[in-house]
Design a protein around this nucleic acid. Sequence first.
DNA 1: GTCTATACCCCGATAGAC
DNA 2: GTCTATCGGGGTATAGAC
Lengths: 213, 213
Amino acid sequence: MTIVAPHVNSVNMSTRRQILDEARELFLESGLAGFSMRGVAERVGVTATALYRHFDGKDALLASLLGEAFATFGSYLGRALAGQTPLERFRLTGKGYVDFALDHPRDYALMFLTDCEDLGYERISEELAQRSRGTFEFVVDRAKECLDAGVFAPRDPREIGLHAWAVLHGLVSLWLLGQLRQSMDRTGFDRQVELAIDLIELSLTRKDSPRRK
Amino acid sequence: MTIVAPHVNSVNMSTRRQILDEARELFLESGLAGFSMRGVAERVGVTATALYRHFDGKDALLASLLGEAFATFGSYLGRALAGQTPLERFRLTGKGYVDFALDHPRDYALMFLTDCEDLGYERISEELAQRSRGTFEFVVDRAKECLDAGVFAPRDPREIGLHAWAVLHGLVSLWLLGQLRQSMDRTGFDRQVELAIDLIELSLTRKDSPRRK
DNA sequence: GTCTATACCCCGATAGAC
DNA sequence: GTCTATCGGGGTATAGAC
């Protein structure tokens, strides 16, 4: 536990901030594998042990980066609210999801491609878990909108949200992990994303009344 | 640079085999994070450096484990050929995929959840890349069967295969990485897998002639 | 050929001095 | 708050014993 002094001077504040900034930069450059306390310390200009006065350890530092990543992620999804119809907002949410993953691949990897136990943020701050749930709820809400409008055939909105999440996460992670590198280029991938969103919609829209779009 | 060992005598074979077995066991117990040359060596009863007489390094050792994993994976997919109709074989392929992932989570993680660059099997043996392509071709063939039978609406079979792969990979990887642990149990996950396969089928089957099943 | 011993450089983390 | 010193754990290259 860190006890904060009653008068937080600007020097302490900026040190923490500086560590965070250098940590982020190192992480973006080198990924999780190349991310080390010693590396961060060198950039900041202090010894590695000094970092432990500001963060509880490597995991805590990564958790802070993760928090920033989730904030950015939320803003990407939020753009979908500009859509004019429930279905368009649902589709734009998917777009935003993929855009975030491609714009911030390191962050995405930290958020969704790292084993929660592997480098132990199993008991990561409750604030993060909540933020994670929150973003999922956003997707579920988009699904509910479509259900209420009668665009989607009746189904559990959480099942819909999870399915859509799985489809796009699967595609994005295959791409980011290099599994598709030898069989398609970026253009081909973008087309596959389009197709995936189309197929999700196709499987969810009701067939009896063609009031879509 | 690389020492190729095409023909090895039986004495080497058994040592090599023993290393491989202990490596596999350690990997299954501890995962990639806990997998170390020193750990393997201790189990085998030799020093760590001795392993380098049999394998080019940690990556080469992991590549061998990966090869065995792909063999097992192939047998899981192959079961789908017992299906009576093209659509059933297509669906059974998906089942086999998920079954493999759940029965052999460590292997699955090594195959599909590890960055190809992270721990450098970027230029992994061509044999492995071919095996990987081969399993994908199996899925594509199942899609072709359905297309030829008129069960699926006309579409590029490779796009279908990739989509189905992405859906199940996404679902499985969210599960294996613990992303769903707090929101559903194993039963719920199994139901979601069923749903995912249903939705894939729904989005691919032709709507004009109901000659499915 | 196969192994051991040693060594070098990486890492996370702690204890205690200033 | 930051330092030095240090521990335990890694991958792997080299030298040399058998």
